[in-house]
Amino acid sequence: MKWVTYCDQSKEKVGWIVELQDEEYMIPLEAAADWFRSQGRDSPPVFESLLSLIEAGEEVSLQWKEIHGSIQSKPEVILEIGVPIRNVKLLAPIPRPPSIRDFYAFEEHVKNARGRRGLEVIPEWYEIPVFYFSNHLAVVGTGESIRRPKLSRCLDYELELACVIGKKGRDIPAEKAADYIFGYMIMNDWSARDLQIKEMKVGLGPAKGKDFATSLGPYLVTPDELDRYKTANGRYRLEMKAYINGNEISSGNFETIYYTFAQMIERASADVTLYPGEILGSGTVGNGCLLELGEEVHRWLEPGDTVSLSVTGMGTLTNNIIE
């Protein structure tokens, strides 16, 4: 399923996406429940947030998956209760997650970013997947504006994927981690590079170079939707692209990731309990930011620019930059 959070008369609501005749429709949870009850069936609870639905547990998710399957096979029901996606104001799937841990998991990105500064990859990077905590209260969705920090003139996008934890767990081994993933979505870890570089010289961070915004969405895609892209080694072959003002700037593939989400979950849950709705970012795919590509490829982002990130099977996440 492709879950969404959307805005209806200033209220956050939950739905999912279906395709019909090459067009996407959003099915509101409330409308789906009403239709299911009209068939003489008991509907599972209607949740006001996707986080609440995830917290309710796997049994509830499976009940909604059954209803999704019923509606998906009935074009007349989709046209009756669905809303064309172009008429829906989408929000971040989880607008206020409990936490965001962002990892540093693509070797090519590490090599490129450090190489720009004349540095080698440190041996410790190959020993453990590392992460930092981002600002979980500065999440934005597709279509929302990103304010460039006042003191920055080196604003950058970062092309990433994120996974969402589906159930509580602690000391989760990598071989069992898949059971703890509710779904995946595109993530843009916006970076003010001039602020980031200065503050990290002190030995802490990133802080103000990162905490102003993180974009998530447009959908939260359940793992079964991506099964067709899974490779023999358990990774996903997903094209990842970034566009500035409609021009393709970055291109990579999620299959090239060095540390898997399973390994990230194992690391994040070591001696710590993970809870439903917590978000783990993959870090930037190789060549997935301007820091790697250099100003000879494209200048830093400026007010008026529009940035779109697209990933196979996961839609497009778009934001415009404002002063």
Rank of each mutant, 00 (worst) to 15 (best):
N320D: 08
W3E: 02
K208N: 06
S250L: 02
M1R: 03
F261T: 00
E76L: 14
Y132S: 11
F261C: 03
G69F: 14
S49C: 09
E107W: 06
P129R: 09
E199A: 09
G169S: 08
E225M: 14
G283E: 05
G286M: 02
R101H: 13
S191L: 08
K65T: 07
V46L: 12
S152V: 05
G294Y: 15
V297S: 12
I85T: 07
Y132K: 11
V272Q: 15
K89Y: 09
L309K: 06
H298Y: 09
E255Q: 06
E144I: 08
K201G: 09
M1G: 02
R170Y: 02
K210R: 09
K168D: 10
K241E: 00
T306V: 12
V60W: 08
D189A: 01
E108P: 00
M264A: 12
R148H: 04
P98D: 06
E23M: 10
K89S: 14
L79I: 10
A162R: 06
Y219E: 05
E323V: 10
I67G: 02
R114D: 01
I244D: 09
A262S: 08
V202I: 13
L137K: 07
T260L: 08
L291T: 05
A242N: 06
G115L: 03
F133G: 00
P206G: 10
M314Y: 04
E292Q: 07
R170Q: 09
I78G: 07
L274S: 08
S191P: 12
P223H: 13
D156M: 14
L317K: 09
I146Y: 00
K167V: 00
R117W: 11
V88N: 06
R228N: 10
H68V: 02
G15N: 07
A56R: 10
V110A: 04
G143R: 03
D305C: 02
V4C: 12
G143C: 06
P98T: 10
L90V: 13
R299A: 05
G15C: 04
S308T: 13
D271Q: 07
E175I: 01
T284E: 05
I128R: 15
R153K: 15
D224I: 15
I128S: 14
L301W: 12
S38D: 14
K111W: 01
K230A: 03
E127A: 15
A262W: 03
L291E: 10
W35A: 00
T312I: 01
P123G: 13
E296N: 15
M1F: 04
N287L: 03
E255M: 02
I85Y: 04
R147L: 05
F36T: 07
D227G: 08
D34F: 15
M26C: 11
G281S: 07
S251K: 13
I265G: 05
E108Y: 01
A113Q: 04
A270S: 11
V121R: 08
G205F: 05
I322W: 00
V83S: 13
E292A: 05
I94K: 13
A113K: 06
C154N: 07
G40R: 11
S308Q: 09
A232H: 13
